[in-house]
Design a protein around this nucleic acid. Sequence first.
DNA 1: CGTTACCTTGACATCATGTCAAGTGATTTT
DNA 2: AAAATCACTTGACATGATGTCAAGGTAACG
Lengths: 196, 196
Amino acid sequence: MAGSVARGTREKILEACRRKLEEQGADVGMGEIAKAAGVSRQAVYLHFANRAELLVATARHADMAANVDELLSASRGAPDGVSRLLAYLDAWAQLVPQIYPVARALLAMKETDASAGAAWTDRMAAQRHGCQAAIDALEKDGHLVAGLSNRAAVDSLWTLMSVRNYEHWVMDCGWTVEAYRDELKRIASAAFIKAG
Amino acid sequence: MAGSVARGTREKILEACRRKLEEQGADVGMGEIAKAAGVSRQAVYLHFANRAELLVATARHADMAANVDELLSASRGAPDGVSRLLAYLDAWAQLVPQIYPVARALLAMKETDASAGAAWTDRMAAQRHGCQAAIDALEKDGHLVAGLSNRAAVDSLWTLMSVRNYEHWVMDCGWTVEAYRDELKRIASAAFIKAG
DNA sequence: CGTTACCTTGACATCATGTCAAGTGATTTT
DNA sequence: AAAATCACTTGACATGATGTCAAGGTAACG
């Protein structure tokens, strides 16, 4: 059974996978990952049924290491809707560079592999929940901009915060992460917070 | 080629490629495309050195068919910076559903193939130019929002208008193209146009 | 008639994923 | 102590994609 194998090798593979994704990009093969982990290629298949499953597991593993939940839920303590939204964006900007390499690999795989696509959707559901909570807090305080439904605001904030937009601003346009963070907050403020 | 009544093989391949990308998504193979065009797989390689080159040529071909340049340059006739920006976004929203299937294939290929990435960058340079012109017009009229450099505004508008954001709003969130267009204009207005 | 351009057929090399079978060495079970 | 089990290794194999190569067919055109 795959679940009963030792834990050491599994973690070695997951960390090697994450490392290779950072160093080399999304097109690393199973053989390279195995080699980086110091195990045989078949050992990888003893722990993960296929490449998509390995990438998903690596994403979860990296999430744990980066304290994703903790960071993203810190904004819950904000005193009002506006500061909560801004704190959420701050946390996201701090987080996204860490998860980007793995996220990119999952996104690439999503194009061809249905199971990877489903895994990505699951992963992003958490982010959407955070957006929902931030918009709800804003609406409750009466600071959500007029003429915008709750759902539309959530979708748009979610879009604005997408990994693809981080990629576009930081990788394609060459912005620093700080500039990305500030622009994210500026646009979100202008687009979602009622003036005055 | 003069006097030939039938469409050239090259065009048959390009149109078959575009059709298959629309029907089947970004993971169509060379054999399938050849079959759809009614030619042998090798005939494709006589016209296009590799898959990346075929996709790039298909993108250009689809651009021609969709009158991309004409549509996107229509906003140049706008009387002021604000209406020019909005007209540009209108044109883009009208255009992007047409180019999306091919764009998606190019984007997918960009992840692994360097030449496809370069081709995509070239393709997107035109869009960036349009953003630059729109922001310039806005700035010239004194309607560019305060505290934002010209370059930052161009990059952000460019990011906002990315194919990925269209994908996220329309495919992932299920918005109509009209809702996408209106939200694009709303956010751009809030983020780039000086109030008052 | 022969050349040329374009296309076809089919074989082949390469490379990645994923499967299968047999074997090894250490630890545990009996 | 013998046997079984676990985690992994080795190496072969199937599959399917891209891309290459060689040889041949056919219609237009000189």
